[in-house]
């Protein structure tokens, strides 16, 4: 544990040296501030940043994840020659990166939102869901990045695979959902759709946030079914479990491959 934290701290430090973790946080901060400066109310601002949260966080997390994995591989040899378990080095580097990115996002987006009138409990709850979703997405996509990079010698190939995965989850998956909806429009689809959405962490995050906002009313009967599901403790637990599983699965796949590979 102590060794892991040491590795994590070092990985975070290595990352902070680059200007871009700070600019990543700054990007969210400027964005949120601009929205408020143009007079958007917090609920509208959430809708406006939603797209960005859903596109930018996964993309940055997975790309930076792959690149930083290859960067750290160079001195991984130094670490692995020390009396440290490989899983410790892996988890340490994973945590160092995920926590840095998540912190940059949380502070960057959270500060302006907290500053501008999140007065009521309900609004604070929405902000919390937004931040939690972003944090989960960061952890999930860094895990994807590591799982890919561990198995791939060529960093360009790994980058390609990462971007493909991101495209698939961010765009293609929802396209397939639409195809399913169109093909089976004669059947009651709400429950199968619920299942399919839960399988994609980006859809889970998007819907969890949408349901907190009043645009959920536009979602009609489908929305009502979703709201009932995600409103229940069971549903919320299941959604949380799904997100957690999306962190755990690639992390385990990654650490497994990391423990077996040669350096």
């Amino acid at each position: 544990m102590r060794q892991m934290m040491t590795v994590a701290r070092q990985a975070a430090r290595e990352l902070m040296r680059g200007w871009w973790v700070a600019s990543y946080g700054l990007f969210f901060m400027l964005l949120a501030w601009a929205l408020f400066a143009f007079g958007e109310r917090p609920a509208q601002a959430v809708v406006s940043v939603l797209d960005l949260v859903l596109l930018v966080i996964p993309f940055v997390s997975i790309v930076v994840g792959v690149l930083s994995f290859y960067n750290s591989r160079e001195f991984a040899e130094l670490l692995l020659a020390q009396p440290v378990a490989r899983s410790t080095v892996f988890f340490g580097q994973y945590l160092g990166l995920s926590v840095s990115l998540a912190a940059a996002f949380t502070v960057g987006l959270g500060a302006p939102f907290a500053w501008y009138g999140w007065s009521t409990r309900d609004q604070a709850g929405t902000l919390l869901v937004l931040l939690l979703a972003g944090i989960f997405l960061t952890f999930i996509f860094v895990a994807f990045a590591f799982a890919i990079a561990v198995r791939t010698e060529n960093r360009l190939k790994a980058l390609g695979a990462a971007i493909f995965l991101w495209l698939f989850l961010a765009l293609v998956y929802d396209g397939l959902l639409l195809a399913v909806i169109m093909a089976f429009s004669a059947y009651p689809l709400e429950k199968p759709l619920l299942g399919l959405c839960v399988l994609n962490p980006l859809d889970v995050a998007r819907i969890l946030i949408l349901l907190r906002l009043d645009v959920a009313a536009l979602m009609g009967y489908t929305g009502a079914v979703f709201k009932q599901f995600f409103g229940s403790t069971l549903g919320l637990g299941l959604a949380g479990a799904c997100l957690a599983a999306w962190v755990a699965l690639p992390v385990l796949a990654g650490v497994n491959a990391y423990a077996r590979r040669d350096f």
Binding site: V47, L50, D51, L54, L55, A170, L171, V172, Y173, D174, G175, L177, L178, I181, M182, S185, L189, E190, L193, C197, D203, R206, I207, L210, V215, L218, M219, G220, Y221, T222, G223, F226
Partner: peptide
Amino acid sequence: LLLEEYPAAIVLLRSPFAEL
């Protein structure tokens, strides 16, 4: 337009795919 024909497509509300 899709929504009018396939109301269940509302699950894609605010999805980057819908914007695309």
